[in-house]
């Protein structure tokens, strides 16, 4: 019984949150890795693209709520995501047209594009705060729990409750759908293959008649879609605050690099590795250990390896370890 209780506690406080968080990171890292593969730079504006995309979704959600539209037990925000994607795509395509394209034509080195993306980051960040403000925004509605802790306890008779928030379930389901769609697109469509070819060998792709501007355009649209979905899921699961979205850039970069920059599969693996280590190392293990160990060995403290504020340290240490032993990341990166 104690063993089951320990398992349930572990699932409740570590597995489920980490899987949800990992899915969000993976979606974010996919966006970063696609830009790195196709446009050849790390996009510092990605966190703020997620923020501004989520903001669009929130505004549309509020609009829908005001009109009395609802999605039954599911959050209304899911209905608003397509609108958010369209608006964000327009925004990033406009940005590409006004800003990035010039440097491609100049054949600027990738690091210049990184600096350019810093400028874009400032602008997106300012726009988000200007429009929706820097504070917390809650936009989740619908059913809060798929299984609440109390239901679980009465159902199983265990002491420990297992709560499955509907936002967590939605995160995982949506992430699986989006990733499956993306991989199908990259591996089985003409446009998707041309993106991989362009990422692999730009000169040869040009010789094969692949239009680079089209590849870049499709990439931005996919990245916008990924950013909006990732941002909205994160916002539903936790809450929306522009600064948090800026900070999430570090774990996202870490995920992409751990997996191997440019490798979509790596981005997903990296996202889960980072998420599990962050949650695992900042979780107070006292509860689980109390169930597992005999009374005499019961821990006195919280058995929390590091305080939650050090979660960035965790992503960072994992990153350094991976880079020390596998400099190209787990999934040998640099090709989409």
């Amino acid at each position: 019984m104690d063993f089951l209780n320990a398992l349930v506690a572990l699932a409740n406080f570590v597995f489920i949150p980490a899987i949800a968080y990992g899915s969000q990171l993976a979606l974010g890292a996919l966006g970063v890795t696609l830009i790195y593969g196709i446009l050849r730079f790390s996009n510092f504006a990605h966190g703020d693209t997620m923020a501004i995309g989520t903001m669009f979704t929130i505004l549309v959600t509020w609009g829908l709520q005001a009109l009395g539209v609802s999605f039954g037990p599911l959050p209304t925000a899911l209905l608003a995501i397509p609108f958010g994607i369209v608006l964000t795509s327009l925004l990033v395509l406009g940005t590409d047209r006004l800003v990035y394209r010039f440097y491609r034509e100049q054949k600027a080195k990738p690091v210049i594009l990184v600096i350019v993306s810093m400028g874009v980051m400032f602008i997106y960040n300012g726009l988000t705060r200007l429009i929706i403000g820097p504070g917390d925004q809650n936009f989740a509605d619908g059913e809060r729990f798929l299984i609440s802790a109390r239901d679980f306890k009465t159902m199983t008779g265990l002491d420990e409750g297992l709560a499955l928030k509907s936002t967590q379930a939605i995160t995982v389901v949506v992430a699986i759908l989006v990733v499956a769609l993306l991989f199908w697109f990259l591996n089985h469509t003409r446009t998707g293959k041309s993106m991989r070819a362009y990422s692999d060998n730009e000169d040869l792709a040009l010789l094969s008649g692949i239009n680079p501007e089209r590849v870049v355009m499709v990439t931005w649209i996919i990245v916008a879609a990924l950013a909006v979905v990732a941002g909205t899921l994160y916002g539903l699961d936790k809450s929306f605050k522009p600064f948090t979205y800026f900070q999430i850039l570090l774990p996202i970069f870490a995920s992409a690099i751990v997996g191997g920059l440019g490798s979509p599969l790596g981005a997903i693996a990296g996202g889960f590795i980072i998420a599990f280590s962050e949650v695992g190392i900042t979780y107070a293990w006292k509860k689980v250990l109390t169930y597992m160990l005999p009374e005499s060995l019961e821990p006195s403290g919280l058995v929390q390896l590091l305080s939650t504020d050090y979660k960035f340290a965790v992503s960072f240490v994992i990153l350094i370890i991976v880079l020390l032993f596998r400099p190209t990341g787990l999934f040998k990166g640099k090709s989409v």
Binding site: V99, I115, V116, M118, G119, V120, M121, F122, I123, Y124, N125, G126, L127, R129, L130, I131, G133, P134
Partner: peptide, 17 residues
């Protein structure tokens, strides 16, 4: 009027670009 302070981020981005 309340969000004037966020103008500075926007401005810095525009200046950099």
């Amino acid at each position: 009027l309340g969000s004037v302070q966020h103008m500075r981020l926007l401005t810095m981005g525009v200046i950099l670009l």
